[in-house]
């Protein structure tokens, strides 16, 4: 362990000030914090809670049901990021639909789904477009490409989301945020500085052990001074402006709408739908898809996990009815999900 890590871990272990709660918003942060056993380093007066920053986890169940409907009833070819395949929806998953005969292909980027559609002109291809500001620009570029190629067999089922609404909603659950480094690389930091003026503290953090420890330490120091703070601690990647080009693309090609987050509910203006100019590629408009509003009651507490009210250990299903092989909630599916990270790396007690 290098000196910087040694010093930071000592400070965090010996902290004996007032109790503080810090929420990591980003799924990659959750995963890295668990993988590195960071919670185990911390004084008991420092609590890290996991927020709603895993795009798979916050994707509404109805979205999965729609995708399964498109694959099984409309015989579409579904193109999806891999980890969405295991998410349960309506008692099924895309993985199971595939085993039953539906055509479901894994893609590694949105543009690959356009390439697939071009190479398979006799298949109706639907790309499952989930993700936050980091993934959205790539997804939109794929739609642009499809338009350029005049692809009539390509469309996109969208559950794209933006983060700022979630910060505001979560602000009461935490004393400070570790803001998601990759999302901020796109959005920039102006909005976070605004939040700071309104009493919301946080730092933009990177992902290495050094970056994570120094970000947590900065929050702990800041909170003990009882003054609202904001600091970009990931300046090698995140600028105040963010990515102007990506933001322009989002503004040009999408319209915001009130989007439903799994386990959390509707957050105003937090969803992104394709604008009129690109609505030809909107699967919701191309196909007649039922609403899928019926909710099944389960004891799954993903919503409370995603909002930092409980840790996965407090959920009655965790490690019992809900495991990575048979996930009940989406948080158990993605490697970015809090439940999955707790399941995989659960610190030695």
């Amino acid at each position: 362990m290098n000196d910087m890590l040694k010093k930071a871990s000592e400070k965090l272990r010996n902290y004996n000030g007032k109790k503080v709660r810090i929420m990591e918003v980003c799924g990659t942060h959750t995963h890295e914090i668990m993988r590195l056993g960071i919670r185990k380093l911390l004084s008991e007066n420092i609590e890290l809670i996991s927020g709603p920053g895993c795009p798979v986890c916050v994707t509404d169940e109805a979205f999965i049901e729609k995708a399964i409907f498109l694959s099984q009833e409309m015989r579409c070819t579904i193109l999806s990021f891999g980890d969405l395949l295991r998410v349960p929806g309506g008692g099924k998953s895309l993985l199971l639909a595939r085993a039953e005969g539906a055509k479901v292909e894994i893609v590694y980027s949105a543009i690959d789904s356009v390439k697939y559609a071009k190479a398979h002109p006799d298949e109706d291809c639907v790309f499952l477009s989930i993700g936050f500001e980091t993934t959205v620009p790539g997804n939109l570029l794929a739609v642009k490409k499809a338009k350029e190629l005049s692809l009539s067999n390509f469309s996109m089922l969208s559950a794209m989301k933006t983060m700022p609404g979630a910060y505001r909603l979560m602000a009461r659950s935490t004393d400070a945020f570790l803001y998601p480094g990759h999302v901020c690389a796109i959005t920039g930091t102006k909005e976070l500085e605004e939040l700071c003026k309104n009493g919301v503290s946080g730092v933009v953090s990177g992902f290495s052990p050094e970056e994570l420890l120094s970000s947590i330490l900065f929050c702990v120091d800041g909170l003990s001074k009882e003054k609202t703070f904001f600091k970009n601690l990931y300046p090698r990647v995140v600028t105040e402006e963010g990515s102007i080009e990506a933001k322009r693309l989002i503004a040009e090609m999408t319209v915001p709408f009130d989007s439903k987050w799994r386990g959390i509910g509707v957050i105003k203006d937090s969803g992104l739908a394709l604008s009129n100019e690109y609505s030809f590629f909107d699967a919701e408009k191309r196909y007649e898809i039922p609403a899928f509003n019926e909710r099944r009651e389960t004891a799954c507490r993903c919503g409370d996990v995603l909002t930092g009210r409980i840790t996965p250990h407090d959920c009655p299903l965790f490690r019992k009815a809900c495991t990575p092989e048979n996930p009940v909630g989406a948080c158990m599916v993605s490697s970015e999900g809090a439940c999955s990270a707790y399941y995989d790396y659960g610190e030695i007690r």
Binding site: P55, G82, L85, P324, S335, E336, D344
Partner: peptide, 17 residues
Amino acid sequence: TEVFIPEPGNELLPRIC
């Protein structure tokens, strides 16, 4: 620190982002 390593189980599914 000491952590569990993930249990073997599922085929690998590449994540988004």
